[in-house]
Each structure stands twice: as structure tokens, then as C-alpha cells.
Design a protein around this nucleic acid. Structure first.
Length: 433
RNA sequence: GGCCCUAUCGUCUAACGGUUAGGACAUCGGCUUUUCAAGCCGGUAAUCCGGGUUCGAUUCCCGGUGGGGUCACCA
């Protein structure tokens, strides 16, 4: 077999909630691993004790789980728990003389008097990126860079290289912002005698102004989207399409399909703007299919269980997110389905049509009082008098609103009895001919 | 600023030398069950610029310009 075992990792640092950019990186790693029958590990890069917080680690794990991305390690690997491994590697390099303890001038108060630096020969490093091809760097300008503050305090580049080595990582799939970190890491690998993984740098996710996507542009974390009522399937689908496409016109994919279709070669080279409108559209598509149980959560407990399933279809085609549905309900948009609405006289354009509408509705049997039958019963009359006059009045009389679903649907949900009661009441009140 | 990456409709993208430059979101117009939403139909809209290579460049090469990244004892 020409392919060696695929082992990838997703290594977030727990200094903030999981960002959509990070989520996409995790997704691409996941898709690549699954497609190749490989493994994917979650590694928490918490070497910076100051900035790393357990709640962020929690948030990251929660977000990944919510998205449906499963990892092969039940417990995350934490760099903070691996200092012995880094220490041994550091000692090896020092005894090799490929690294050395350097005495520093302390210009800043929190700097160390001694740090560990790599002995950099300053050669040209060339590596192959699966997405971009060959990339070369002259490492001279890097100088003898610092790899660790002390034997027990490795810095990012060193910890990454040691871990990727010890974890037998075959492919490093990460953000484009790491391209210029790569030569430095390769230098460390070579000093260590570690094999070079295959690199693939994916483009960054940009804000609408093409700058780096950050908090000031609105929601950036996965949990924020979850809390705004987006479905994980929609976010996964959207993120997959941001910078990748299968080469066909297909736009809707399940995670399973993505595993089948994904390929690193088809990943875009340039950064992509995060477009909330398209995410909304996708969310809407998934919302149309999602089970009724999920929609039930949009109702407060005071909504009857008979009424809910009748209103869910209306919600499905109206809102783009679950949160929107909740506030729709909370704002009383559908209250007229359970309480007789107050109907303002000025909204009632042609109340005189109500009496004929009532007569026509009475001819429909209780059992077939559905939106189709109601429409059929009223069509001829509406055509004759004017649709706006008949149907508009009908709709307002039932809902009390200027905007609502069509009157046939409203009437069918209310039922024959309630519909006739409401119409009659209004007819009586305004005492029209 | 040095180094690196990058460049097709407003946005996400297809076209791996020959197409009326395709699709999706958004937008605009029409239709539909007054209205709103959805849905359906249709329209507007792009190859950054300049040189090459070639019979022929969106596509290959070079330069410019724009955008992004990176230059920490952060990750």
C-alpha cells in the first residue's frame, strides 16, 4: 500500500471560544481523516498558562461535539501535562549542541535571564504544500530563535513539533497563517531527527471588509451560532463550502457525504468572506427538513400540544433560525390562533362581504374544513367581488393583522366552529349589511 | 517595511488553452392563495492591470497593483 496511515490533529489553544475558522480547520481535518480511514486527535495547546482557561477548553469540546465531529481520543491531549516529553527532547538538543542555553539581557521585566535557543544554520527550507505546491524560505533572518523559556517551559513551535512527532502525525492541515511558521518548525524537526509531516495550509476566513474575522464583526464562535438558533448541520455544510467545493452544482451535504466527496486538492487558495446570508439560507434549508421535536422547543409551555404541530409548518417557511421562531412566538405573532384577536375597524376594508363568506363556509362539512376546500368554496365569490375585498377581509377578520399567512390556512387551523364564531362576531359588532 | 501566500459577478465559486465564462447566495422584475414569508419563472452582474508564450489565453510565464498572513521569552 502506498498510503501510509493517516493521522491528523486539531490543536486549538484554549484562549477563547472555538472560532468558526478553527471549526472549519477541525472539519477539514476530520473529513480528511475519515475519508482515508485514518485517525484524528484533539490536542489542547495550553503551554501559555496565563492565557489558557479551562472554560475555553470546555467550550471547544462542546462546540466540536455539537458540530458532530468525533475525535479518536476520548480525553484531549494537553500540552501542559507533557512537560517531561518536552524536557527530554530539549535536553537531547542541548547535548547535541543543536540548541543552547542563552544568557539574555533583560529589557522587559517578565523576560528570563536564560532561555533555550536553536542553533540556526540559516539554510533555505523548501517544503511541499498539498494545496499550494512548493514553498521556499530563507531561514537566515529567523536567527537563533527561542524554543523554550526553560527546560520545563517549551514555547509553541517546539511543543508542536515534538507532539506531532510523538503522535506520528502524518498530515498537518491548518490555517494559512501558519505558512510562515512552517520553516521554523521544520528546522526544529531536523534538529530532533523527526520526520516531516505533509503540510496543507487552508485559506483564512475573512470579514466582509476582507480583514481577519474577529469579534468586532459580530458572532465568530460556534456556540454563538448555536445560541442564535443555527443547526449544526447547516454550519458544517456552510463551513465546508467556504473554500471548498466538489466541482459539481451540489450545495447541500451531510457530514457523511462530505467525507465521501472531500478532497484537499479542491481547496481554494485565497481567503473567503464569511457570508451570513448564505448561512441563513442553508439553515433555512435544514430547518425545513428537521424533525418536529426540535421545533417544539420554540413554544413556551402555555401553548397547547394540539396547536403546536399545526403552527410548525407555518414557522418552517417563515424563519431562518430557531431563535427567530422563538421570538416570533414570544412576540405574539401567532396569538390569534389561540385567542380571539381585536380587529381594528380600519383594517377591515369590506366587512359587508363577511355575510356571504359565512354562508359559503357553512356549506363545508366539519370534516373537510381544510384549506383546499375553503379555497374552493370561496373562489367564485372572491373572483366576482374582488379578491382583496373578500379574502383580505376574511384574513383580517380572523387574525386582526395586516400581515399573516393566507386566510384558508388560518381558517383550517382554527376549525369551522371557531372560524364562523369569529366572523359572525365581527359582523354583529359592525352591524353591516 | 522584509519575507511568504493570494487574485473570475456584491459574496461563495465552476470552467485544469478553444464555453454565448456556468451554478449558488444576495439583488431586481414577474407569477402565485389580498398581504407578509415561502415557492416558481426571468433579469442585471465577473475573468485586477501590463507584458510575454501560443493559431488561440480566465487558464501557462514575468512584472505591477490590490488583498491577506507573518516577522514574540502568544499560539
Amino acid at each position: 500500500m502506498k498510503n501510509k496511515q493517516v493521522i491528523v490533529r486539531f490543536p486549538p489553544s484554549p484562549t477563547g471560544p472555538l472560532h468558526v475558522g478553527g471549526a472549519r480547520t477541525a472539519l477539514f481535518n476530520y473529513l480528511f481523516a475519515k475519508q482515508n480511514g485514518g485517525q484524528i486527535f484533539l490536542r489542547i495547546e495550553d503551554t501559555d498558562r496565563e492565557r489558557s482557561k479551562p472554560e475555553f477548553e470546555q467550550n471547544i469540546i462542546e462546540s466540536l461535539t455539537w458540530l458532530g465531529l468525533e475525535f479518536d481520543n476520548a480525553q484531549p491531549i494537553r500540552q501542559s501535562e507533557r512537560s517531561a516529553i518536552y524536557r527530554a527532547a530539549l535536553e537531547k538538543l542541548i547535548s547535541n549542541n543543536t540548541a543552547y542555553v542563552s544568557r539574555e539581557e533583560i529589557e522587559k521585566k517578565d523576560k528570563r535571564g536564560e532561555v533555550i535557543r536553536l542553533r540556526n544554520l540559516g539554510k533555505v527550507i523548501t517544503f511541499t504544500d498539498l494545496i499550494r505546491g512548493e514553498i521556499s524560505f530563507d531561514t537566515t533572518e529567523l536567527g537563533d530563535f527561542v524554543m523554550a523559556k526553560s527546560l520545563d517551559e517549551p514555547l509553541y513551535h517546539f511543543a508542536v513539533v515534538v507532539d506531532d512527532w510523538r503522535m506520528n502525525i502524518s498530515h498537518v492541515i491548518r490555517g494559512e497563517d501558519h505558512i510562515s511558521n512552517t520553516p521554523r518548525q521544520i528546522l526544529i524537526q531536523e534538529a530532533l531527527g523527526a520526520p516531516r509531516p505533509i503540510y496543507a495550509h487552508i485559506p483564512l476566513i475573512l470579514a466582509p471588509d476582507r480583514s481577519k474575522l474577529s469579534k468586532r464583526h459580530g458572532a465568530v464562535s460556534v456556540t454563538e451560532y448555536r445560541d442564535q438558533g443555527y443547526l449544526p448541520e447547516a454550519l458544517v455544510n456552510y463551513l465546508a463550502l467556504l473554500g471548498w467545493n466538489p466541482g459539481t452544482d451540489q450545495e447541500l451535504f451531510s457530514l457523511k457525504e462530505l467525507v465521501k466527496l472531500f478532497s484537499l486538492e479542491r481547496i481554494q487558495h485565497g481567503g473567503a468572506i464569511f457570508d451570513l446570508e448564505k448561512l441563513k439560507w442553508l439553515n433555512r434549508e435544514y430547518l425545513k427538513q428537521v424533525s418536529e421535536t426540535i421545533w417544539q422547543d420554540c413554544f413556551t409551555s402555555d401553548w397547547s400540544t394540539e396547536l403546536r404541530p399545526k403552527l410548525i409548518p407555518l414557522l418552517r417557511e417563515r424563519v431562518a433560525t430557531l431563535e427567530e421562531a422563538k421570538s416570533f412566538i414570544a412576540n405574539g405573532e401567532y396569538d390569534y390562533f389561540r385567542t380571539t384577536p381585536v380587529v381594528a375597524r380600519k383594517l377591515l376594508k369590506n366587512p359587508e362581504t363577511l355575510s356571504q363568506t359565512i354562508t359559503l363556509l357553512k356549506s363545508i362539512s366539519e370534516n373537510s374544513f381544510n384549506s383546499e376546500q375553503i379555497k374552493t368554496a370561496l373562489t367564485a365569490y372572491a373572483e366576482k367581488i374582488g379578491r382583496a375585498a373578500v379574502l383580505g377581509t376574511f384574513r383580517v377578520a380572523l387574525s386582526g393583522r395586516e400581515r399573516s399567512p393566507d386566510p384558508f390556512t388560518i381558517a383550517s387551523i382554527l376549525g369551522k366552529k371557531e372560524t364562523l364564531t369569529r366572523l359572525q362576531k365581527i359582523l354583529n359588532r359592525y352591524d353591516v349589511e
